[in-house]
């Protein structure tokens, strides 16, 4: 009997605090106009719009096919995950688009480190910032950014 009361009390106590918000991990994402591209999310042209150019890149062996959807200012590459295609990389193709934090192709290295900080991994000309399993890679030639790419780790 006592046990039952205790159980009920605990139950009521917890029920009261049962409002749970959706968990948000900090990851890199790219926004263009009203479209928000999140690495690892499922991709479809109905959601993100019809591409200007489409290409398929099969793997060397095995049955996976990567797909690239080229739009006016950026290119999305998807990779298969089960029966879905998930966003694998986002490649900015010109300087008319900015990252969410405001950096675009042509900006200076100084601007880059001011915006994103110094916690990057540098390999040759590539400066890579990492959040969770997403990466934002800037290729800097001389003092200017010549390439910007988002990519996610593949399982």
């Amino acid at each position: 009997m006592k046990k039952l009361i205790i159980l009920l009390l605990i139950g009521i106590l917890i029920t009261g605090c049962s409002e749970v918000k959706k968990e948000e991990n900090k990851v890199y994402s790219f926004t263009y106009n009203d479209k928000n591209f999140i690495l690892g999310e499922e991709f479809s042209t109905s959601k993100y719009g019809k591409e200007v150019r489409y290409a398929e890149v099969p793997s060397c062996a095995g049955q996976g096919v990567d797909k690239t959807y080229t739009y006016d200012h950026y290119e999305i590459t998807t990779t298969p995950d089960g029966d879905k295609d998930k966003i694998y990389t986002i490649y900015l193709t010109d300087d008319s688009v900015k990252t969410t934090e405001g950096i675009k192709i042509g900006d200076s290295l100084e601007n880059l480190t001011k915006t994103y900080g110094n916690d990057y991994e540098k390999r040759d000309n590539a400066y890579t910032y990492t959040l969770d399993n997403t990466h934002l890679e800037f290729i800097v030639v001389g003092d200017t950014i010549s390439s910007i790419e988002y990519y996610i780790d593949i399982e």
Partner: peptide, 14 residues
């Protein structure tokens, strides 16, 4: 051959 992905700039070519 139809379309190919955009030729990406690399961090290093050496």
């Amino acid at each position: 051959v139809t379309n190919l992905p955009t030729k990406k700039i690399l961090g290093s070519y050496t």
